[in-house]
Design a protein around this nucleic acid. Structure first.
Lengths: 207, 207
DNA sequence: GTCTATAAGGAGATAGAC
DNA sequence: GTCTATCTCCTTATAGAC
């Protein structure tokens, strides 16, 4: 084996860990399995990470960023309001459906973070980001269509984030894509019903 | 120790397991911890269950029933439509908020079930039940208020189930009750907007 | 039929070689 | 500074005692 820096090996191990967890689940993922996946000797692990938990923490943080980026990339708005709401939601869920293993990994890491008192804040941040992204999307699409939302934007952002996340989890459980997309379409319909024309007098309401 | 039947011990162990998982998490729950919690000698475990996985399977099934029953008990409808929608959703989420440990246990068992090829159907059934219950509630409340839903009932049932489940998960992550309830209220508002008076001519639409 | 002492294996971590 | 052989502990499971 060529000599590598600790930093390089850390990245290699994090990537290997993500693959193993996605494939076998967090419970079945030992430090041995990770080093094997990375093609390193067993003892290498504790030279690069103080403990297994330290790797897991870093993996969660790393993973959060990836999720948000993926969601952003999916949001594309070259269509009209009704269609864009339906399609936008469908595309986002579609990404998750395309990589089941990553989604399960995500939920497993979330639960793991929630158990640790030190790491619980990571989960908080993750969901704050989801809601923020959903909010930006809703704002953007409303502006584009020249309408405003008639219910509180913070609440609506969180609700949208919740619908996407909940749909993902439900789909993981039953893998029924048709029903999942039908539910999303229903949500899009309901979103349409709480829009109002953006006439000169009233601005977006805050609450 | 008094002599007990296997069946009795099985129940004792299942209950003990639920407590330990709720307290320490699935990852930290060993067969030792379970037998200790139940006040039994270590080896007792494999006399009552073939393996740790067998106990986990039974625990998931058992737990599903409890969840559904709790949700049903919560649904109470002695109020008018707008308020009942808000209150109904709030009460359901409130139950989960009141027993955080059980909720986390529930999600951990769900993920565990999803990993096992033999147990994946349990997750499917669990979410099918959620949707069914949500559907019955929606139907019941609409009848009571003399209105009908203007979007597909199966889709609406799933969406409602998804909103509740997703809200629970989001709340577990950030513990922000105000925001969680605000999002639910927004959903209730949107539900109101897709009702129509139940006049003699048209029956409930199917799709 | 009910229970327990003991085994066999895998986990995370470390002391020390290069 | 980089790496690896080795240790200890804890886990699940079983063979066999009552």
């Amino acid at each position: 084996m060529t000599r590598l820096s600790v930093t390089e090996r850390r990245i290699l191990l994090l990537e290997a860990a993500a693959r193993v967890i996605a494939r076998k689940g967090l419970a079945e993922t030992s430090t041995r399995a990770i080093t094997d996946e990375a093609g390193m000797p067993r003892g290498m692990f504790h030279y690069c990470f103080k403990s297994k938990d330290e790797l897991l923490e870093q993996l969660i943080q790393h993973h959060v960023t990836d999720m948000v980026e993926a969601a952003c990339a999916a949001w594309d708005g070259e269509r009209d309001l009704a269609e864009n709401l339906r399609l936008g939601l469908r595309v986002i869920l579609g990404i998750g459906m395309g990589d089941t293993a990553v989604q399960m990994l995500s939920y497993e890491l979330l639960l793991h973070a929630l158990r640790g008192t030190e790491t619980a804040f990571i989960a908080r941040n993750q969901y704050a980001d989801y809601a923020r992204q959903a909010g930006e999307y809703l704002q953007w699409i409303a502006d584009k269509a020249g309408v405003r939302w008639t219910v509180s934007q913070p609440a609506l952002s969180r609700l949208t984030s919740v619908v996407i996340d909940g749909s993902m989890l439900n789909w993981l459980a039953d893998r029924d894509s048709e029903k999942a997309l039908a539910a999303l379409d229903a949500f899009a319909t309901m979103l349409l019903s709480i829009t109002a024309p953006l006439d000169g007098g009233a601005d977006q309401q805050q609450n």
